[in-house]
Design a binder for these strands. Structure first.
Lengths: 207, 207
DNA sequence: TGTTTGACTGACCGCCCGTTCAGTAGCCTG
DNA sequence: CAGGCTACTGAACGGGCGGTCAGTCAAACA
């Protein structure tokens, strides 16, 4: 079979990937605001100008980098949702997928913390949306719909599913943050079970 | 009784308060990064230079503003913790206090979202702490200790109390964010009950 | 081997924003 | 009312960073 991509395209894709990887490393180290284009270029081993051959400006670089990683996360979670599992297992699966993803992509976590929410890259644009990043919101809505179905089936109590989804997502993000900053042991199934336990059964002692 | 503060001190305190209030309003409107000293000065109705009579630099202005509001929040929560209440009521009380506080101090919420966490104002300083803001951490630890006591008394299941505390705090923050951005109705006891319900009893149907 | 091409470079530009400080105006004091 | 003192002002400064573009050079080509 013919190679689908020409040599040039492969090289180009490699460049783009290196630059995006460098972007994540620098942001992970310095934080979003302190990450300069110069330092990203150095980290990627290219000149500053090169970055502007592949990205319109700093904003586009960061947005594309973020979207790329977010899509991977979304795909993994969707893979769980597409399976035909009982409600409990879906929740466990989603949590496990998220934990595993951030465990493997620590560099991305900082960027995720900064961009999922309103505050975000507002400075440059006119009017920022009051809402969060599209992919974040979509994810919350998907989780909300799983919760809603469970409510309709009578498996869980009736309550606002979207708020419950946000509660679960942000609560688990906090646990991941703690996990990632405290030590280097990978977040494993035990953490997913910890969070699932709180949500599914609460903390009250079974009597 | 003599006035404890001289007239000058009162005037000075008033200035400081106006500037800090303006700071919160501007950050609430534009976000941390886009909030310039000039705009804060305009909002407060003083010249840019005046701000530097009361604060060393922009960092100190923001830090003092943040700390002031954080202390109020901390005090309210401590007031709940100091009461001799059953575990359930303490949790409910803490959540209600937090909800009420942010409902009354919407302007502060953006600042809170930005500064409680690592990312924070790192750019300027050499090595930022890997941990969160001191008052945030203290609050998490206090909640953790309440949870720990409840575990020791056998009221709730055994698990890592600090992580559970973080889960509750961030989960509830997410719900508050949703509440504050979606409409203008004040977050009331129903929201506190919503969150308390998830934590205390989980979402599973009682059977 | 001479020529062309375009990916890559990095010095430079201009803007923005935090910070400064000489100047001003209002107020107390004698 | 003169003189000085202090709180306040805002134009100007300087540093930093995103973005540009004239120049370089290695590879492809003839």
């Amino acid at each position: 079979m013919f190679p689908i991509r020409s040599k040039e395209e492969v090289v180009q894709e490699f460049r783009i990937q290196s630059i995006q990887d460098a972007t994540m490393r620098v942001i992970s180290r310095k934080g979003m605001a302190a990450a300069t284009v110069q330092e990203i270029a150095d980290e990627a081993g290219v000149a500053k100008g090169t970055i502007y051959l592949y990205f319109r400006d700093r904003d586009e670089l960061i947005e594309k980098t973020f979207d790329g990683a977010m899509t991977q996360l979304t795909d993994r979670i969707d893979a769980v949702l597409d399976q035909d599992l009982p409600f409990d297992e879906k929740i466990r699966g989603i949590l496990a997928a998220k934990l595993a993803f951030f465990s493997e992509n620590r560099e991305f976590f900082r960027l995720y913390l900064t961009l999922r929410m309103p505050e975000g890259p507002a400075p440059r644009q006119r009017r920022q949306k009051q809402t969060c990043h599209p992919q974040y919101r979509t994810r919350a809505e998907k989780l909300a719909s799983v919760l809603k179905q469970a409510m309709e089936r009578g498996e869980i109590r009736e309550m606002d599913p979207y708020r419950l989804a946000l509660f679960i997502i942000e609560g688990s993000t906090a646990v991941i943050l703690e996990r990632l900053t405290e030590d280097s042991s990978p977040a494993d199934a035990a953490d997913a079970e910890f969070i699932a336990g709180i949500v599914l059964d609460g903390v009250r002692k079974r009597s």
